[in-house]
Design a protein around this nucleic acid. Structure first.
Lengths: 220, 220
DNA sequence: ACCTGAACACCGTTCAAGT
DNA sequence: ACCTGAACACCGTTCAAGT
């Protein structure tokens, strides 16, 4: 008998390998050797399936992270942030779009609540005054989700411009394009093009977290 | 004779009033009283049309902002950020998803370049050391885009849960849902539920900018 | 209760044909 | 060069019918 879990797992598989466009009810029911009606019987429509898949992946990413020893608030925030970063950057690029959607449309859902609660507790422990807890946590969450979305590699997604380009080629093409900009009008782009060439996304993400954390101390 | 500009304007009209789902080639060609082939003749496919619409709106939002008197670097960053915030929050919620997509897929395009250049120059003027310009600017841009995406109101979008709920009702439903969470497991959510009730999104966005700017001073 | 799969109402895109 | 619109290959979703 077909189970809800099987459907969600198969859906995540399709999403991971081909992006959101690859998750069609037909492809899914073929992979599961059923009719399309069976999908609707178990998980409702495609949109709900996408939400459930998002929930499953995020919850599991945050769970494996939480099984470690307690640390400083800064360290715990870094862990939560990296758990999201790694989950999206490495396997589930489709999450970049979906995670934002989930939080905007369903702020009372488990995904939003879990992320806010995890980050928010540490904000309190950091010494931020109670009246600023909501602002401080929102700022951290906004930064994390923004950075994580911007860093999602679009490898598996066919909707990119040149599908035959790998990550490095894409990067080279970008820096040469920046170098070809008019230096009169774009002095800054020229100034940073050297730094982009040998930077690491993950390191930069951590630097960003450190900047926001440093900024929070001014709220005291 | 049909022009490229007319098509883009009509597309933005459809997007503003009904979200991404409302932009269909059929609806567009009906509004313009042409055949679907005419669209493809002028603007390529739907995806390119979406990119062009994004570019048009963002460029114009940044242009009207730049026509003001020069100010401090902090003020100029706030202006660019608010120009994006207001454009998305008030008229073009569909941009939240599309802007991120544009930057990820086309970092050499005018949208990415314009935003980075505008923010980046001020980062230099702020006294951030040259070696940190890229990290600092990325952090700001990531925060701005993250916050702006999370704040896009989903009024016109039918894909929301209850379309008959207005902004205030939605907010009330969220805070009561947060209040009903188990206080043992979600102490933080209970602590902030009061603050969410009477907070202003725009003010919170500016507070976030201030936090990141404060954090940047530590890079000196 | 659980599943099938044809049918329906949509899509984006192409392309011969017209002016 | 510019445009038409039928045709094609897809979609998500429903629902009578089967077990």
């Amino acid at each position: 008998m077909l189970s809800r879990e099987q459907i969600i797992d198969a859906a995540i598989g399709l999403l991971d390998s081909g992006g959101e466009g690859a998750l069609t009810v037909r492809a899914l029911s073929e992979r599961l050797a059923t009719g399309s009606g069976a999908i609707y019987y178990h998980v409702g429509n495609r949109d709900q399936l996408l939400d459930t898949a998002t929930e499953t992946v995020i919850t599991s990413a945050l769970e494996t992270e939480s099984s470690q020893a307690v640390a400083t608030p800064e360290e715990e925030i870094r862990r939560v942030a990296l758990a999201l970063f790694d989950a999206i950057a490495e396997h589930h690029q489709w999450l970049a779009t979906r995670l934002t959607l989930q939080i905007v449309r369903n702020p009372a859902g488990p995904v939003t609540v879990e992320i806010f609660e995890r980050i928010g507790r540490q904000v309190g422990a950091l010494g931020v005054p109670r009246a600023s807890w909501f602002d401080a946590t929102s700022t951290l969450v906004h930064y994390i989700l923004g950075a994580v979305s911007q860093n999602a590699r679009m490898d598996g997604d066919t909707s990119g411009i040149q599908p035959d380009m790998d990550r490095e080629e894409f990067f080279d093409a970008t820096s040469t394009a920046w170098q070809e900009l008019d230096p009169e009008n774009y002095p800054f782009m020229h100034a940073i093009v050297g730094q982009t060439k040998q930077h690491d996304d993950r390191d930069q993400f951590l630097t960003g977290i450190a900047i926001v954390l440093a900024g929070l101390t001014h709220l005291r």
